[in-house]
Design a protein around this nucleic acid. Structure first.
Length: 204
DNA sequence: CTCTTGATCTTCT
DNA sequence: GAAGATCAAGAGC
């Protein structure tokens, strides 16, 4: 018997200005927010922060054709091809030229679940959006969305209503700066890409 | 449950 | 030519 999950009544719509500060402030503040693309999406439960001074960031070695959006103003979507196969989406933060972004790694599906199942194939709800490539497939985000504003159609991000318990850990799948605890998640969420085993914190 | 592998685009060496 | 902000399927335990 599948669990019935009713769509949440959204909170305040986040505007681009929300992203105009440090990625390390924006990233934890996004946990619990609701992301919709063409009305399909859910609650953000896992993100990672990347900054241009961070060797693991795409922007570390300066602008390229791929990462150009990262060097632009905050509040826009940066989409890149991962391992030649998947798409991954980021929210550009801070200010123009600072080239920092938050990687979206997982959401808890709440809106348009049947559409997500259709796009992802036969998969249980827990696996629909539990990884950066999976989220983009479920939300049908591709390079065509690269550079779109985060506060205009088809994208909408709604602020959370309450401050959730946040957990942190090292980022997934990187080799440079692999010790930095810049992965943020919703405590006890079953929809993250991998369990958070290490430090828990309630800051922010 | 863990470990291995193939898929194959963009960037850097 | 190699590595990479990944995923799914298959083998083995």
């Amino acid at each position: 018997m599948p669990e019935i999950r009713k769509p949440r009544a959204p909170g305040r719509l986040l505007r681009r200005k929300f992203f105009a500060r440090s990625v390390h402030e924006v990233a934890p503040d996004l946990i619990g927010a609701t992301l919709l693309v063409n009305g399909v999406g859910g609650v953000i439960v896992e993100v990672e922060a990347y900054h241009h001074t961070d060797p693991a960031a795409h922007s570390y070695n300066g602008p390229t054709q791929r990462n150009a959006i990262m060097f632009g103003p905050p509040g826009y979507l940066y989409v890149y091809r991962s391992y030649g196969i998947h798409w991954c989406m980021n929210f550009v933060c801070e200010k123009e030229g600072s080239a920092s972004a938050v990687l979206l790694r997982a959401i808890e599906p709440t809106n348009g679940i049947s559409a997500m199942r259709r796009r992802r194939g036969l998969h249980d709800e827990r696996s629909l959006c539990s990884g950066p490539g999976k989220v983009c497939e479920a939300l049908a985000v591709t390079n065509k969305h690269n550079g779109l504003a985060l506060d205009a159609a088809p994208i909408a991000i709604y602020a959370r209503r309450e401050t959730p318990q946040i957990v942190t850990g090292v980022r997934i799948g990187i080799t440079k700066a692999a010790d930095k605890p810049w992965r943020y998640g919703l405590a006890n969420s079953k929809f993250v890409s991998k369990p958070f085993t290490t430090a828990t914190s309630t800051d922010r």
